[in-house]
Design a protein around this nucleic acid. Structure first.
Lengths: 339, 339
DNA sequence: CCAAATAACTAAACCGATTTAGTAAACAAA
DNA sequence: TTTGTTTACTAAATCGGTTTAGTTATTTGG
């Protein structure tokens, strides 16, 4: 069965392309195409498995029924899960998803946004590198529909769906304090990401609020591209010498996993000697030795809400464009912070 | 700065759309557009940040510079990693990636293929449900470029990139035998997937080859959509009663994780009482208690090779279309099978 | 010096849909 | 009987690119 076009249907049925197009777009009634003709068109199209060329359709309509998704890295389980929920929700609304990874690189992100706009995506969902303030401002000014997720620009009014990083980190730290830990370290990623700043802040505020002495030497910020080797040094510095810690807060899952590896290789007993807790988790954190406590992010809600906001915006251009959502994380207490 | 079109450039520079189009597609020289004119066009386009509308371009060229990727589930870390490598490699060749998840549903997969073809993707990479033999045959007959990954149809000659499931499973089982285990169970997913059949076969052949008595009761095949609750029963059946096992082979990572949870809840000492090993792994399998041995799949190679084969096919229609690659898995021995 | 070749372009068709602005025929109202 | 409506359509423009088939002016060869 070879490919069939609108024109073919029109010719075969001795009708115009207009009539066929109208009927196939469910606008036959309002355009007074007779019931009989509608039936003939529908049946013929069905029988020959007609599928409109979406490029032509998109060009004509100026839209593509596609949502662009830009994340730092699709192989990070956190973003993969969000992507999965976004895809699912988008399909409910009739949209496809094109994705790309920026690898935390501002220039790449810039090009991806550009490229997706050229491909006529109808809207964007971006977990930004947060190094493209101007780009995002331009997007906003052009009135193009988009939603930021996971990371947002505090200085720009935009739609966003993020989690309460400050509150989550504060809660984690307070839990450790409640367990009687007195010298709590923080291991994070060296980054301008607001999420990371907020997590550090949450940790610091918890420390101060509880009358403990903040110690900048207890805070290690590792280089993203080299965190594994820097982790070795960071852990060493934290567990040896006079000021060794009795607990560590990790600001993201892969740091916690890597940190635990190093703690083990130094022969540290977790949680007896050092308790640990992680912001966000990996799939098997409950199986790890010891099971790692974590503040879990609501990935499903992040994805669903982002799509809902975006679709609203795309389909009703009057929708306000600073729909802000800050979701709560969920504290999962496991053995790694001392029962 | 407002959007600029080919026509605008032509008008501003007093040239034809043809000239501008040719130059911007790097075909100025071969079409004898003077150096000076080329320079004017290029500079003007650059200065006004001209970006061609890919819908129009795609419609005209009959292609989209896009690869479609269909996987069972993008939130499975295995597919997420493959997706990431595919995206990276595709970009090297100038292609974008659209992805969708079939959720192991044949009908969904069918619709996704259809939808992607309508969107004029230039090629497809599919980790198929393996329930769409006809669909794949049609694709093949239409001469449309595609590559199967992870799962293939043994009865159809197509491009594919898979791993040696039989060999990997056999090797895993043999390792357990080498460790002195004598009653080895298998927990798999109830499925017609060739990959799963091959893994079971590898296990069975290893059992027989080593003079052990195959015992069909030692093989449990769980329902994909309900494996967590069925796991409880399966583990119970395996570790209680007369014929209890001293080792279990899991045919995929999430089964191993789930199985370990259940073994623990039954108070089984892994690996002393029951050793376990998993086909494929999750990110933190080395941190789990005990660290889980696994046969790791070469996700990067799977992605890279799939893209390479596909691009070859897309750009040279004469390329043969049964480029078959079977990659080796890598056995990672950890504590879960008894040091 | 004239015909053929070349350089440097361009007008218009085309890709496959949607949409605007009609039109012809049938019927109703005045 | 003529005008006005309604019904059931259609021709042609349009979206923004690419491409085919020329065109004109200048060189070159014999």
């Amino acid at each position: 069965m070879k490919k069939i076009f609108l024109k073919d249907i029109a010719n075969e049925l001795n009708l115009s392309k207009t009539a066929v197009s109208l009927v196939l777009n469910n606008r036959g009634d309002e355009n007074k195409i007779s019931k009989n003709t509608q039936k003939r068109i529908l049946e013929f199209a069905q029988k020959h498995n007609y599928r409109p060329n979406q490029m032509a359709r998109g060009l004509s309509l100026g839209k593509s029924e596609t949502i662009g998704l830009i994340v730092p890295n699709i192989s990070d389980i956190f973003y993969a899960k969000i992507a999965s929920h976004i895809e699912y929700k988008a399909k409910e609304f009739g949209y496809n998803v094109v994705f790309s990874s920026s690898n935390e690189d501002a220039q790449t992100e810039h090009e991806l946004i550009s490229s997706m706009l050229n491909r006529q995506v109808d809207g964007l969902i971006i977990a930004s590198t947060q190094k493209n303030q101007n780009e995002i401002l331009k997007l906003k000014k052009s009135n193009f529909p988009f939603v930021l997720i996971d990371r947002h620009y505090p200085d720009i009014k935009t739609n966003y769906v993020i989690v309460d990083n400050f509150g989550g980190a504060k809660q984690m730290t307070e839990h450790l304090i409640g367990q009687g830990r007195t010298t709590i370290g923080l291991i994070s990623i060296k980054s301008e990401l607001d999420a990371m700043l907020q997590r550090k802040l949450g940790y610091q505020v918890a420390i101060k609020d509880n009358g403990m002495t903040p110690n900048s030497r207890a805070i290690k910020e590792l280089n993203f591209f080299d965190y594994q080797s820097e982790m070795k040094k960071a852990i060493k510095a934290m567990v040896t010498g006079a000021k060794s810690v009795d607990a560590i807060v990790f600001t993201t899952h892969y740091l916690a996993a890597s940190g635990l590896r190093e703690l083990r290789s130094f022969g540290i007993d977790v949680p007896r000697e050092v308790a640990i807790i992680s912001f966000d988790e990996l799939g098997a954190f409950d199986l790890v030795d010891p099971p790692i406590s974590a503040s879990r992010q609501p990935v499903k809600d992040i994805g669903n809400i982002a799509v809902e906001i975006l679709v609203n915006q795309m389909e009703d251009k009057n929708e306000k464009i600073d729909n802000k959502r800050v979701l709560k994380t969920e504290l999962l207490i496991r053995k790694s912070c001392g029962v």
